[in-house]
Design a protein around this nucleic acid. Structure first.
Lengths: 339, 339
DNA sequence: CTGAAAGCGCTTACAG
DNA sequence: CTGAAAGCGCTTACAG
């Protein structure tokens, strides 16, 4: 059950493996192989259903037609949907995707970079964790293109494709104010990464722009690595400690999901008693009663950009860095209807 | 920025590449290399942070330490969660995962098998589509292990890891009857694949066992490839056409999600007016008001079994086929509370 | 106890 | 217009 090789074709065509290789790589014209030979070889290759051995080719050329995709958590719908788009887009160029999740864990992320490196992927799509700056820089020295997604390091020159998180936070804030909410809070993570900072700063600026300054006691920051019950308990405590609060912005979709549970368990009605808007859309937000407003990311568009930038860089390495910043969409639903 | 190779180590240690290869592959003892040389080589390899070139090794040995994972839809939480478990488990054995989605499309599935084959993956984990029997059989002739998941072909001898779908359907049926529902229907797909058939047959048998025979007009089958609005419209029509219905079993999680919308839009209250239970758990079911009962699959356990069987077969190919059938869990929630 | 050599399947600089 | 040969980085049967 051995696959058939370039040698087999050469033998059948009565030419050398060299000639076969040229023809099959579309260099027939360029190498001035005769029309007859080109046709003959193509026919035999088709008949034998020849498939080049990617390992051998990779060993020789250093190209594996494989890209590495590192997400934070493949089980999070934002990332799994994005992964699907990336896979589809990469497929169009004949690339396959090796994927892994970091769980937002630095050591795991470092291990993954190491593995992908010695697997010789042609390019990297990375959701970086905190502290990964040095590793990204080192990896860049290998000359393989890297695209950071969802977030980036302001101090490291890299390609990135991200959402305009500042604008997203800003839009969420102004929407809440325009709906008539007065005492507006934010629940975010303790993460210091740029995407969380931007959401926060945009939100604060949005409130300020409409003269509703964000108050210190209306800010709640939660660590990433807690279990569900702990999240919910802490959120309830926060809500109870600030009874004046009449609307909240949740800075990630999972915080929003926990938020629904926390608010519900306090007997508050979303929209009327407590306005709510979350970052990132989710099936749950669409289907919940009442439905939940959110700031949505254009996932399809994002995936297409990511792969496009990567393919450009693979085919045409440049020194300049590509930065793509996509606009968020405000999905207005029932949870921000005060009346 | 070339990686360092076995040759570099050989040079530094003053031995041949052969010896280095033996030592680094743990065959030092077996090949009776002296302790001194083994230590020396190990030390140098560690210092140089030697990583074997997987392509070269793969070309020589035919093993790539890569497995192919083909799911129906990576954006479906059931599959993305499973993918995560598979990735974690495979990682423990040093294997990486190449994944793809079929979208339940035969041609796409065939293309994926082709690609994975000439990428020389060491094993396959496949969610088969209808009509893939021949391709699976052909692929098995290559001698690489294949594990079918979620469903299998009764007429093709393969390894598989699946849920006991019959039991799941049975449990759903008896639960609804025991809760006091009398006019019970089922919404399933037009798929003829074994997992759907088993769910249906189990459900029918469960009802029968409690003397509530399933009536023809209480059965609704829907094609897979529709858009959301079409699904919901068709479900509403079905519900309206059988007003006596007081409970429904949805045979997949996405049908259940559409079902919630359809039932809600008819102004019926889940649980009291219309009992509902779905196959496959989903965040939405847990968080919905009212929460939705379901038949859940043990995803962690399933992923662990899948990888274990595959690794066993890779390391120790046998002629016998492994069949793992896991038990479902009934998650009882508010949507099946009649009172 | 250790090494020279062949070979996995390709690509490509070089030669004619 | 075409081919012989080297080499990518490994592993392993063979020889001593």
């Amino acid at each position: 059950m051995k696959g058939i090789s370039i040698k087999d074709i050469a033998k059948q065509a009565g030419v050398s493996p060299t000639t076969v290789s040229f023809v099959l790589n579309g260099k027939g014209k360029e190498k001035r192989i005769s029309e007859t030979v080109i046709k003959k070889i193509s026919k035999i290759a088709a008949k034998l259903k020849y498939k080049p051995n990617q390992l051998a080719r990779g060993l020789r050329t250093g190209k594996t037609k494989t890209i590495g995709l590192i997400v934070e958590d493949i089980a999070n719908p934002f990332f799994s949907t994005l992964a699907k788009v990336v896979e589809d887009e990469a497929d169009k160029s004949g690339y396959k995707v090796l994927y892994s999740s970091t769980e937002d864990n630095l050591a795991k992320a470092q291990g993954l970079l190491e593995v992908l490196k010695y697997r010789q992927v042609d390019g990297y799509i990375i959701t970086p964790t905190k502290g990964l700056e040095k590793d990204i820089e080192t990896l860049q020295e290998t000359g393989k293109p890297i695209i950071l997604i969802d977030r980036y390091f302001p101090n490291v020159a890299t390609n990135y494709v991200v959402l305009d998180n500042y604008q997203g936070g800003f839009d969420a804030a102004t929407h809440l104010v325009q709906q008539g909410y007065k005492h507006i809070g934010i629940v975010t993570t303790t993460s210091s990464l740029v995407q969380m900072r931007d959401r926060f700063n945009g939100f604060e600026a949005g409130l300020k722009s409409l003269n509703v300054p964000l108050q210190k006691q209306h800010i709640k920051r939660m660590p990433f690595d807690q279990q569900r019950p702990a999240f919910i308990a802490e959120m309830k405590k926060f809500l109870q400690s600030v009874p004046a609060l009449d609307a909240i912005f949740f800075a990630t979709n999972y915080l929003g999901i926990y938020g629904i549970e926390a608010i519900r368990s306090l007997g508050l009605q979303l929209g009327r008693d407590m306005g709510m808007i979350s970052f990132d859309d989710h099936d749950i937000f669409r289907l919940n009663t009442p439905s939940i407003s959110c700031v949505a990311q254009p996932i399809e568009e994002m995936g297409a950009h990511i792969v496009k930038v990567l393919m450009d860089e693979i085919q045409n390495p440049t020194e300049e860095r590509h930065h793509v910043v996509l606009g968020p969409s405000l999905m207005i639903r029932e949870s921000t209807e005060k009346h």
